[in-house]
Amino acid sequence: MTALVAMRVAGFVRGGRALAPLIAVLVVLGVIYGGGASPAAVAYGYSAAALFPVLAWLTKLLLDTEPDVQRRLARLAVGPAREATAGVLTAILLSLVVCAAAMVAPWLFHGIDTEQSLATGIALGVLAHLLAVPPAVALGALASRAVTGSVRLGVTVLVVSAVLVVVLGLTTSWAPWLVPPVMATARALNDPRFPPSAATLAVLTGWAAAWCAAAYAAYGWFRRSRA
């Protein structure tokens, strides 16, 4: 499976398809950190929320890079479960690289206000990004061509879901549980004077885990039923 992950990373990077999401990441980081310094937790909370749709898009692009026939050849070589898992792992790996870059970037722009409690802020930032990656990858995987069958439907799924994550994530939302807690996490980190309690963090983590369990189960079901 490592070899399949390596092959997909190479195909994605060498083929030049990684360029568009890379530019998107730079734009997002530029917008967040261009305006001045803010406390670590606040900055990282926004960064995680803003990267969510980019990471989902990156996942879709990554999984769609491989031609359908090649995906089927990979499936014959390693078996259906491991082929699908390898795709998700590749996306998680690349997303973690993006998140690491996003954690480092503000230090280059002096985007972090170092007067506030730094260690807590960074720890919360790491958590916020880690809570954003698995749902973003799940969403991108559900929008991939292997699941949706057509490019147009895939893009629709991706865009509508990304908008819903924001809309249903607002405080006035009637069904926040339908989407992963991306907005809720950003809000919880928004006030550096009152960092979120352990209970709040546990709820957010559990919420993200439950959403991911459902989304990955759906992905597995789609991949089993569609060649």
Binding site: A10, G11, R14, G15, G16, E66, P67, D68, V69, Q70, R72, L73, L76
Partner: peptide, 14 residues
Amino acid sequence: IGWVPERFPADQPF
């Protein structure tokens, strides 16, 4: 199982 597809997927950067 070895499968030789009708058209080899040549659109790959290798």
